[in-house]
């Protein structure tokens, strides 16, 4: 009995210490945005199951994923539809979240301007102020089609976005959901904000 209570005291003490050091108990809520067919649902599926990539029908209404873990942090995410008529909902969901992921199809040269327009509008919103925004350039596995980061930065006027959002609150990552590469560093970056 005594041993047990000593053990429990120690354990809760250790738990407190562990949490104080920031090793445990961190949680984050995300909202995943971007044009239709950027790879939002597929990314979240991959994060949640760790496994196979498969095709998904377009997302027509927002839905919340089950919890998943990345960089030892528990995350919950809102998967938003990317089609034009549902983009007005983005703002409402950003309010509830601690970080924003914005996916861009790096291989779709024709729609980069449209993506840039939406990103610009988003960064201008009050609710996004102070939140970390990770821009994920997806489909970089398509080596021939995918544009370079330099080209994309120029075309989306990344310097202006940084100025508006604050340099420390925005970052850009090359990823491939298909290969399971690149988004880990984005999560590491987000983890520092939580």
């Amino acid at each position: 009995m005594i041993f047990q209570s000593i053990y429990e005291t120690w354990r809760s003490l250790l738990d407190t210490l562990w949490k104080a050091l920031g090793f445990e108990g961190k949680e984050g809520s995300l909202v995943v945005l971007g044009l239709d067919n950027a790879g939002k649902t597929t990314l979240l599926h991959r994060l949640r199951t760790g496994g196979d990539v498969r095709s998904f029908p377009p997302t027509d209404r927002p839905h919340q994923t089950e919890k998943f873990e990345s960089q030892n942090i528990k995350f919950q995410a809102w998967d938003m539809g990317g089609h034009e008529a549902v983009r007005h909902l983005w703002e409402d969901y950003v309010c509830e979240c601690s970080a924003v992921l914005f996916l861009i199809d790096a291989a779709d040269t024709k729609r980069l301007e449209e993506a840039s327009f939406e990103l610009d509008a988003l960064i201008g919103e009050k609710v996004v102020k102070g939140l970390p925004v990770a821009i994920l350039l997806n489909k970089c596995d398509l080596e021939e089609e995918a544009m370079s980061t330099t080209e994309i930065c120029k075309r989306i006027q990344y310097d202006d976005l940084r100025r508006m959002q604050g340099e420390d609150n925005i970052s850009i990552f090359r990823i491939s959901v298909l290969r399971g590469e690149g988004y880990q560093s984005a999560f590491r970056w987000i983890a520092d904000f939580l």
């Binding site: 239709d36 067919n37 377009p58 027509d60 089609h83 034009e84 779709d108 024709k110």
Partner: peptide, 12 residues
């Protein structure tokens, strides 16, 4: 998109 490009009648 080099083969086909998907649009929604109602959402796009």
């Amino acid at each position: 998109v080099h083969i086909s490009f998907v649009r929604s009648v109602n959402l796009d």
